[in-house]
């Protein structure tokens, strides 16, 4: 029971750190890592909710835990996809960031 505030605060801190990283970091890989941090924070909050729901009826609430597992799979798939796209971008253009300032102009194909 006394663990809940600690876990809750940790989750909130992870969410904050992840959001900060996503907004501030320029490198794509760092953004992807920050997204994972953010996801970890949200999943920790799911755990807190499960524990709180459990104290009323004895034992932990299983539904949020099932959601966390689903969410982990989705986050894993998202990370894999993002890393693949980032890798391809690096291989083809040599760029490791998605800032507007450098590289080719986005959009508008020259020839379809």
């Amino acid at each position: 029971m006394s663990g809940a505030p600690i876990f809750g605060l940790t989750g909130a801190a992870l969410v904050g750190l992840g959001l900060f990283g996503l907004l501030v970091q320029a490198a794509v890989l760092r953004k992807i890592l920050a997204f994972n941090l953010l996801g970890a924070g949200v999943f920790l909050l799911f755990g807190v909710v499960a524990q709180r729901g459990g104290t009323a009826g004895g034992g932990a609430d299983a539904v949020p835990q099932a959601m966390v597992i689903t969410g982990l799979v989705v986050a894993f798939a998202a990370t894999a996809l993002a890393v693949v796209v980032a890798l391809r971008m690096h291989q083809i253009t040599g760029a490791a960031t998605i800032s507007e300032s450098d590289g080719a102009e986005p959009g508008g194909s020259d020839a379809a």
Partner: peptide
């Protein structure tokens, strides 16, 4: 040219 804009979309 696609990767940069699509990666931003994904993020």
């Amino acid at each position: 040219s696609q990767f940069r804009s699509e990666l931003r979309y994904l993020l």
